[in-house]
Design a binder for these strands. Structure first.
Lengths: 190, 190
DNA sequence: TAATTAATTAGATTATTATCTAATTGGATT
DNA sequence: AATCCAATTAGATAATAATCTAATTAATTA
């Protein structure tokens, strides 16, 4: 369902990503034509037009009806409209990204900045990488409870000596919140 | 305006006719990303992602904003919607065919079946070619008047000896109509 | 039945395009 | 001022895809 979505969209866009195929669609938007007629009008050989038509047909955009030994092609207007409308639907594009490995960047950063035992070699200065490290470290905390600064530092100490830079990062990037007097910390919901 | 239409549509479809570019669009439909982040998630090198982004940007589908030395890309949702809606508009597809040489098939058929002086060598039996010949010969008649069968035959005689087969063709293919008694003929409007 | 015709399929060639590595650019940090 | 880093550009290579000719198929007419 999710992966199909990408395949289906891809077939649709590929079908229309050629000038001569677009012209064929333009022709068939007006009336049906035989292969030979279109070949003459586009100045192509019939096998080439046949090939284009088979790609359009595979995407469901055209269909043929046999009449004597002509194959008369016509546009599947509804199919075209459905695809265009699907593109406009809210849920379509996010679904295309459904199977993408969103954590790949974080994993790469964590690997580059960690010793084999899981401790951090250092903390990156660049924002994107710092955030990736924070997302990794924050997993050590529990959503359902509150922590004293002492407890925070104890947990962070397993990752890095300078616990303050990590603790401050959580606050700066709004991954944690705390009491005004700084006595208690807790995770912020996404 | 008319040719631009094809170019613009083509750029749009080509921009989206690649699996990785579709995935990029899917990612950016959710939030903005840097080039390096997307490269990691798609398992591509940054130059490759940069190339894909420039094609998407050329089609107006994504835009970048610089933040420190990141280029943060986001989806141009409106542009995408406009293109999709344009595809649904009645006039778009016929406009794509506006510059096509619609007479190319007829010309080819007429040339194949005519002597240099314009007379027909023979009349084709195959429907499509017969129609092409009829469309050619019918130009000899005037829209604003009526013809007796005798006058018809005289004009058709300039093209071909067997005038009846042409005259009958006009009637069969509804290019001409006539009185029930067959006394007068006239051109049918398109 | 033989000959003709439109379309498709097969196979080869050419043109595009996606991708990579290496080099360059332009900000940002030390 | 020197260095670093993300992004882009340049240039080369590999993978796709468009197109052609030749052969085949299916259907029609002489």
């Amino acid at each position: 369902m999710t992966e199909n979505n990408l395949e289906e969209l891809l077939e649709f866009f590929k079908a229309l990503s050629d000038a001569n195929r677009l012209k064929i669609v333009g022709l068939l938007a007006q009336r049906e034509y035989s292969v030979e007629e279109m070949a003459a009008m586009l100045d192509l050989r019939p096998p080439t037009v046949s090939h284009h038509l088979s790609r359009l047909a595979a995407a469901g955009l055209v269909s043929a009806r046999a009449e004597s030994y002509y194959n008369l092609y016509s546009l599947e207007t509804e199919a075209l409209e459905n695809k265009a409308r699907k593109l406009l639907a809210e849920e379509t594009l996010p679904a295309v990204a459904a199977d993408i490995d969103l954590d790949a960047y974080d994993r790469r950063v964590v690997e580059n900045y960690s010793y084999p035992d899981g401790r951090l070699k250092q903390v990156p200065t660049k924002r994107k990488k710092f955030e990736a490290i924070l997302r990794y470290v924050v997993k050590a905390f529990d959503r359902d409870r509150q922590y004293t600064e002492k407890e925070i530092n104890q947990i962070l100490g397993d990752y890095y000596e300078d616990t303050a830079v990590l603790r401050r990062g959580f606050i700066d990037y709004k991954m944690m919140d705390r009491e005004v007097d700084g006595s208690l910390y807790w995770l912020v919901e996404d």
